[in-house]
Design a protein around this nucleic acid. Sequence first.
DNA 1: CGCCTGCATGTAATCGTTTACATCAAACCC
DNA 2: GGGTTTGATGTAAACGATTACATGCAGGCG
Lengths: 330, 330
Amino acid sequence: MNIREVAKRARVSTATVSRTMNGSDKVKPATAARVRKAIEELNFLPNSHARTLVSGKSHILGLIISDITNPFFPDLVKSFEDEAVQRGKEVIIGNTDYNPKRMAGCIRRMVERKVDGVAIMTSESDPALVAELTRRNIPTVFMDTGKPGPHCANIRVDYGQGIQEALQHLIALNHRRIAFITGPMNLASAQTRCSVFVSTLKARGIFDEALIEKGNHRIEGGAIAMRNFLKLPRRPTAVIASNDLTAIGALGVIHEMGMSVPEDISLIGFDDIAFAHLTNPPLTTILLSRRQLATMALAALDALIQGNRQSLTDLTIPTHLVMRSSTRAI
Amino acid sequence: MNIREVAKRARVSTATVSRTMNGSDKVKPATAARVRKAIEELNFLPNSHARTLVSGKSHILGLIISDITNPFFPDLVKSFEDEAVQRGKEVIIGNTDYNPKRMAGCIRRMVERKVDGVAIMTSESDPALVAELTRRNIPTVFMDTGKPGPHCANIRVDYGQGIQEALQHLIALNHRRIAFITGPMNLASAQTRCSVFVSTLKARGIFDEALIEKGNHRIEGGAIAMRNFLKLPRRPTAVIASNDLTAIGALGVIHEMGMSVPEDISLIGFDDIAFAHLTNPPLTTILLSRRQLATMALAALDALIQGNRQSLTDLTIPTHLVMRSSTRAI
DNA sequence: CGCCTGCATGTAATCGTTTACATCAAACCC
DNA sequence: GGGTTTGATGTAAACGATTACATGCAGGCG
């Protein structure tokens, strides 16, 4: 089934069929109707590969993430896809599995599929691999980390804002011994969260080195860190975690030890994953809006594709404290 | 950058380049080396659209699901993608958003992209839309619901087994007033879960009509249903929910009412989503293995693609009780 | 009436591969 | 040594769309 059969049935040339389908050029209404009828009757759908081959535009966007089972990402994927479909584009997703080798594979596939652009949000982005994209002039937008360049935009996430809001909130509730559980420190974003925490507390003169523990952005890391905090002679009265999974791990340990949140300890997470309001108590956390991120990424990609770079001036996403029930005054 | 430039640089014809890349036909080692060197130097990657166009094989598989933010699906997507990548295939994902119109769009895109096959796991599968796929001889496999056919396999999920295991477990713990919160009853799979529950209890002579409440596979549904159970003069001592979200909703209400699980009420979910072991207490639930589902779907798809139908005899996935801490004896 | 203009449509080249078939040289056989 | 086989490579026709250019026809004008 191809455009030629449609042409034959409508008694026109393939060019006319193509023109009616794309609506660009003028076709006499009567002819167009005949063509549409033929398309309908034959149930014809054009072959996108042939289209791409000749036009050079695949109308596919790539989205590279670390791991779809990380609860941060499904929202991002969904928002990204929704917006892309609205713009008549499709999305192919690459899971790197936190593995640079798979990242290379993802990028290769994106190139082979001639994607119109790529959005990347992975922890472990290797500049060499990414250079591959820019070398081929494939518009690329980083969410969170990366350097802007000729075919390349970067969206900055303002991690600091949320952390500061959280600290203000806790301090207003009279907390002074505030602890932080970090993420993996090779992640730029995790570093930022931590360093804003440190500098804000130092500025207030209530920073205590002992109240920082390393986590890994997973449940266990949060649990281990929390156990250490609870062994301290002077325990923290509030804990901020570098992400929600970490907070959930900490929450489990607090319960395990027969204490409760927020009565004994206040707890704040980061990300606002779907389950943050399903914990007991519902977790106060810092929202990083995946929808906003996706929307901005798509807009940036569009701008790069259209070669319109001036609209790429301020690409910053805020983060905000979302109050639930895991904090209280002391 | 195309195969011709590679050919020129390696001083061979395009056919030889193609042959070296595909490794199928014989090429003299010295020539092949020259070609590979040229490919390397030019950083050449073949255009997959051109390949697909001539070969008719896109090496893309479609995966259609209802909603990636439904926590059941990310695991499925990941497993499916992992296996697909291993087989040298790519995956494009279609989110129907529980919306038949978007389902139609997904299918259209799959056809246009000339996918080698499609796997479908959606609640709301419209036979007419799916006929579209089989009419075009696109291998299709349904996970859970659908009818096998010439280009079409169906994987049956044995919901009954898990429900029966759960009931045996509860009965062994001396529970007799066992309640069930259903899913949306237009879903075949939700119906099955419910009817197995009913028939098993009837067979034991301990069925009570009052202990069935409707849910919607979401948190709120579980919460509402649980409130109703707690108003009953003779409350249930155990509750099975049609999925984990429902169970989590019920759990919230139980806590809210100052009761606790499993001391006052035993609770069992269904699916074993990632957060089932993060609830407090960790939720006993019935596992429907997404990895198994994905593996079987891919195997079935492969068989259909290769036209090898005899390997499609018994496509059944079991479900199993996973014991955690939300049940106890009375 | 002859020519020009402009619209609707057709013709055919093109995109970048794969692959059937053609070619050609070397090797082999009797 | 001529003919045949074999193996390596080249030539060119596909695949199914888009689109620059060509064509043809109708109407307008002097």
